[in-house]
């Protein structure tokens, strides 16, 4: 089974051990356009599924990053503070936050890459 999952909010989750790295999908970055700012959460914050753990801002929009998993914020990608355009350049390679999972079953409701591609087909 792959360790890469997607949400209907166009976020991706890559699970490494007990840690989930979260980013936005390529489709999401293309919809947002030029990303000018990424607001990152505070380290050590406890979060639950559906909480906002950041904001991705373009000139004409601002989208919350809703976490699809519960746990504790253990890493934030500070490179994005100075270079938010990294998300436009390669959305899949640039994670935004990492969360230490408190409940692994959160992942079961997410889509795998194939499902997400199909979902995009319907959405696009």
């Amino acid at each position: 089974m792959s360790n890469l999952f997607f949400t209907e909010e166009h976020e991706w989750v890559r699970v490494e051990g007990n840690k989930a790295y979260i980013g936005i999908s390529n489709y999401a970055q293309s919809q947002l356009g030029d990303i000018v700012y990424v607001e990152l959460p505070e380290m050590d914050d406890e979060v639950s599924v559906g909480d906002s753990v950041g904001v991705v801002e373009s000139v004409k929009s601002a989208s919350d990053l809703f976490t699809p998993v519960s746990g504790t914020i253990v890493e934030i990608n500070e490179d994005l503070e100075d270079s938010p355009e990294l998300l436009n350049e390669d959305a899949m390679a640039n994670w935004i936050v990492a969360i230490e999972l408190s409940e692994k079953e959160d992942l079961t409701s997410l889509m795998d890459e194939e499902d997400y591609k199909q979902f995009l087909g319907e959405d696009a």
């Binding site: 801002e57 373009s58 000139v59 004409k60 929009s61 601002a62 919350d64």
Partner: peptide, 14 residues
């Protein structure tokens, strides 16, 4: 005008 993404016409409820 900049930083408009904070404002009501874009960010609405938030």
């Amino acid at each position: 005008l900049t930083l408009q993404a904070r404002e009501q016409h874009i960010r609405r409820f938030k």
